[in-house]
Design a binder for these strands. Structure first.
Lengths: 151, 151
DNA sequence: GCTGCCGTTGACGTGAACGTCAAGACCCGC
DNA sequence: GCGGGTCTTGACGTTCACGTCAACGGCAGC
C-alpha cells in the first residue's frame, strides 16, 4: 500500500502561505504551478507546495514571475539535453552575481538604517540641555554625512 | 568666495545612474526629489544626487517609492518634534526587521542557487558513463531535496 | 429542493513605476 | 532667423501582479 502523500486544496495552500486563491491560479496561468485536477478542482501535491515556497521566496528577493518560472523550469530539466544545461548554468551564474550585488545593497541599506536608528536614539535619549545639544549636532552632522553615502 | 558646489542637469544625472529623465521627474512628482529651478530647468545639487542614490538603493532592495519617501522625509526632520522622532524610530526599527528577514531570504535563495550550480556542473563535467550516472543520480536526488527547501 | 460553501472560468479593474508621444520654451552657432 | 539640441509640462499607454466581480458547477446538511 503506497502512502497517499498529503495533498492540499487551493484555499488550504492559500491560507498557509497567506496568499489568495486568485494568486495561485495566476501562478498556474503563468506556468509556475500545475497542480493535478480532480474534476475541475485543483489538487496540490507536496511538491507543488515546495514549488510555491520557492516562488514566494523568489518574489521576496525581487524576481519577476517570468524569471522564477525559468528557474523552476530548469529544475525540471530531464537528462540528455546538455546544451540546455549549459545555458542553464550560465543563467544561474548570472543570477548568482545579481544576488550578490543585491546582498551588498541590502547590507548597505541596513547600515544606513542602523545609523539612522542610532542617531534617533541618541537624540531622543537626551533632554535638550545646551551642552548636549551641540554635541548632538556634531553627531548629527556626522550621521547625516554617513547616511548620505556619498562614497 | 564660496565654492559653487557642483550641480547636475537632469540628463547628466540620468546618464550617471542609468535612469531616464522621466524617472527623475517622476520621483519629483512623488516628492522624493526637489531640485532647484533655474527658470524652468531643474538643477540638481550634490545632496540631490545623494538622495537619488538612496532612492535607487531603496528600490533595489524592494522598497516602494512611497516608503522611500517616508524614510527620506525622516532624514529631514527638524529639531524639537520629539513625537515625530519617536514614531520615526518605530518605523525604522520595523524596517530593520523586514530587511533582516529579507537578508535571510536572500541567503536562502543564494544557497539554493549554489546547489543548482553545483549540480549542473557535476552533471556537465562527467561523460555519461554508467557508474558516474548512478552516482550523479544520487547527488541529484539530494540536490533536489535541498533545493525544494521543504524545511 | 433550497441554502451555503467551496470551487471554477472569464473579463474587467487597479496601483505602482514608469514609457511614450505631443507641443512648446530656451539657447547656441551660423 | 533657422535648425539642432536640451529642457519643460501634460496626457495617455504599458507592464506586472494580482483584486474584484459575474455567472456558474457540485456537494453537504436540513
Amino acid at each position: 500500500m503506497v502512502k497517499p502523500e498529503r495533498t492540499y486544496s487551493i484555499s488550504e495552500l492559500a491560507r498557509e502561505f497567506k496568499v489568495t486563491p486568485r494568486a495561485l491560479r495566476f501562478y498556474e496561468d503563468k506556468g509556475l504551478l500545475s497542480p493535478r485536477r480532480e474534476g475541475l478542482n485543483r489538487v496540490y501535491s507536496v511538491r507543488d507546495r515546495a514549488r510555491l515556497q520557492l516562488i514566494l521566496r523568489g518574489k521576496r528577493v525581487g524576481f519577476p514571475l517570468s524569471e522564477i518560472r525559468e528557474i523552476l523550469d530548469l529544475y525540471d530539466l530531464g537528462d540528455g539535453q546538455r546544451a540546455q544545461m549549459a545555458t542553464a548554468l550560465k543563467k544561474y551564474r548570472a543570477r548568482m552575481v545579481a544576488l550578490e550585488a543585491q546582498r551588498e545593497d541590502l547590507v548597505g541599506a541596513m547600515e544606513a538604517l542602523q545609523n539612522g536608528i542610532n542617531w534617533l536614539e541618541a537624540r531622543l535619549a537626551e533632554p535638550a540641555s545646551p551642552a548636549s545639544v551641540s554635541a548632538a549636532r556634531a553627531f548629527e552632522r556626522e550621521a547625516r554625512r554617513r547616511m548620505d553615502g556619498t562614497g
